[in-house]
């Protein structure tokens, strides 16, 4: 069953259209990478799913139930981590989680056990200070604990790793991978390596439109070009080989930049072998020969260009 269904969603702020006819679905136990530049409409989409904003048209279903603006019941299925989570500085993390637990309506002893469990998970179990003295990474971790408190079916994370150092990022990605066993995750970010590490599905939002949507593997196959990179010691060597390849019918395209040649071919294996043969026969000494894996970054740049 799909945890989240978004159907032709449109949102305008004044006369400015921020989202235009967005549709996508998230199946259960899936980490859904939600990509886009700043201002593409990621946060707006999330706030619409949470019922914090009112859509101009379109429908959203969470676990089959429609989202209504205002007090939406569907929020009981959702855990939300805002980009900059804000807490009450005068509370301790345990007090804060208890407050959240009471609001969601967990039983007293369940609150206690969930608090222990989650504080352990995010590494704050020994923290008795009040939240006012916390670092950004600690607040982010408490934010995840807070979002997971009600065992959500859908976890929405708004750029959870953007403000953190590499260690903090790794910690959060690990927590998310663990959480995936129980919940689907909508994960917005502009850090592409994070997406490649943990996401199953990817959607790219550009200027309010969904320009790409599918599983990471499929997208790479569909959109990536077969490229081989050749690097030479001297620039004239690269030029020499380029003049050879440009006229070759089996090579689709050649780009030269300083000592590097980017060669585009139809078939990586066959044409690759052929390319090697050409280089050997030409007698030009080669420094590096690399089959370029299609990267998400290349894909991203291509679709938003």
């Amino acid at each position: 069953m799909n945890v989240l269904e978004v159907k032709s969603l449109t949102k305008q702020f004044g006369t400015k259209t921020v989202l235009r006819d967005i549709s996508f679905t998230i199946p259960s136990q899936c980490i859904f990478g939600f990509l886009g530049q700043n201002g593409a409409g990621k946060t707006t989409t999330m706030k619409l799913i949470l019922g914090l904003l009112q859509a101009n048209s379109g429908e959203i279903f969470v676990c089959g139930e429609p989202v209504v603006y205002g007090n939406t019941k569907t929020n009981r299925w959702i855990g939300y981590l805002p980009d900059v989570p804000e807490f009450y500085s005068y509370m301790t993390p345990r007090e804060y989680l208890s407050l959240c637990g009471e609001i969601t309506g967990l039983a007293k002893d369940e609150i206690r056990s969930r608090c222990d469990e989650l504080l352990e998970l995010v590494g704050l179990s020994k923290e008795n200070r009040r939240i006012g003295g916390f670092s950004r990474g600690m607040k982010q971790r408490l934010g995840i604990a807070q979002a997971l408190l009600n065992n959500p079916k859908l976890l929405i994370c708004d750029e959870p790793t953007s403000a953190l150092d590499p260690v903090g990022r790794k910690e959060i990605l690990d927590v998310l991978l663990k959480a995936k066993e129980k919940t689907a995750i909508l994960f917005s970010t502009h850090i592409l390596t994070d997406v490649e590490q943990i996401c199953d599905q990817v959607a790219i939002l550009h200027e309010g439109e969904l320009v790409l949507n599918g599983s990471l593997e499929d997208l790479k196959k569909q959109h990536a070009k077969n490229q081989i990179r050749l690097v030479f010691k001297e620039e004239h060597q690269a030029c020499q080989l380029q003049s050879l390849l440009v006229t070759d019918a089996r090579i689709k395209e050649v780009h030269q930049q300083d000592t590097t040649l980017n060669v585009e071919v139809n078939d990586l294996e066959e044409d690759g072998r052929y390319l090697l043969k050409v280089i050997l026969e030409s007698g030009v000494p080669i420094y590096q020969f690399e089959v370029l894996e299609p990267t998400l970054e290349a894909l991203f740049m291509e679709v938003i260009a």
């Binding site: 007090n71 009981r76 805002p82 804000e86 807490f87 609001i103 309506g105 009600n150």
Partner: peptide, 16 residues
């Protein structure tokens, strides 16, 4: 102003 209510509202706390 600070945005401290966002967590609680998304946890199902009615604004009323």
């Amino acid at each position: 102003g600070k945005g401290t209510l966002v967590h609680l509202v998304t946890k199902g706390l009615p604004k009323s």
